[in-house]
Computed example of a mutant assay.
Amino acid sequence: MFSPQGPSVRELVVQALSSVEHGYDLLAPKFDHTPFRTPDGLLCATADALRPFGPFGDGLDVCCGTGAGMRVLKPLCRGRTTGVDFSAGMLAQARRTHPDAEWERADVRDLPFTGAFDLAVSFGALGHFLPAERPALFAGVFRALRPGGLFAFPIGAPPPITSTWYWALLGFDAVMRVRNAVWRPSFVMYYRTCPLQAVRDDLAAAGFTVTTTPLTDLGQRADGSPRGRLVLARRPS
């Protein structure tokens, strides 16, 4: 799973026993050499799905990490591109990789923008927020967008209960819950706390008009349904 340039088992253990912010500060120099970085295939599929809705003006990557989402924003946005994250270490890596973008350190549950962007994206971040925290996150993105602006992020289809992947994710979430029950600071990272319908409901409650489109580049499951969908949350004009 990890390249020779990636973190050691010891480094991963230290990260897992830290807070989310400090854990990512520690992991940042080697993050792009781990499976946790958003895969290029998912970035390309998202860009392809968004292209018919563009071009856009200014773009925002919410929970940007080391800046992989710029591969989606830059080809689609004619204006400035900005990434926001609360990990100073991840932002430092992002600045080195994408010096032509703007980077802002902030807690995305309290985004410091108002009516500043036409497109916002996010990749792999929802698991870092408990369900009770999503309304503040989505309200902040809504506020950051201009009227008519679009918030887009991919979400995978749930694996069937008969698959190994289903039980692996269930086991991971169970381990994280036990860890957070007995160890402080907590490290919030769950895979099964953001089902599509619950996310749609929270987006609608924040004021968005919500649709989805299949990420056809990712293929289909055995039953013919898409492996992933792009959630499209539009701030009304």
Rank of each mutant, 00 (worst) to 15 (best):
A198E: 14
D217I: 00
A198M: 07
L215P: 01
V210R: 05
T212H: 08
V188H: 05
C194I: 01
L218N: 06
R192D: 07
R221N: 11
T211R: 15
A198C: 02
A198D: 14
A198R: 05
Y190K: 06
Q220F: 10
T212V: 14
R192F: 02
S225F: 01
G207E: 04
L218I: 14
R227V: 13
A205V: 04
L230M: 03
L215T: 02
L203E: 09
F208T: 02
M189Y: 13
F187Q: 05
G219I: 12
G228I: 10
G219D: 10
T211L: 08
G219S: 09
Q220T: 11
T209F: 01
P214T: 03
P226S: 11
L230A: 04
T213M: 09
V210S: 02
R192N: 13
T212I: 10
T213C: 13
G207W: 04
G224H: 03
R229P: 00
Q220G: 00
F187D: 02
L218Y: 08
G224D: 04
A222G: 07
P226E: 13
P195V: 01
A222S: 15
T193G: 05
A222P: 08
V199L: 07
A204G: 07
T211F: 06
F187A: 05
F208W: 10
A222M: 14
D223G: 06
T213D: 14
L196C: 07
Y190T: 05
R221D: 09
P214K: 06
L196M: 06
T193M: 06
L196D: 02
T212L: 12
R200A: 02
A204H: 07
Q197F: 04
G207V: 08
L196N: 04
L218E: 10
T216R: 07
A204F: 06
A204N: 05
L196T: 01
P195Y: 05
L203Y: 09
A205F: 08
T193V: 11
C194P: 00
S225P: 05
T213R: 13
R192S: 09
T193I: 09
S225L: 12
P226Q: 11
S225K: 13
C194N: 15
T193H: 09
R221E: 11
P226I: 10
V188W: 02
D202Y: 01
T213P: 03
Y191H: 14
Y191A: 09
R200F: 01
A204P: 03
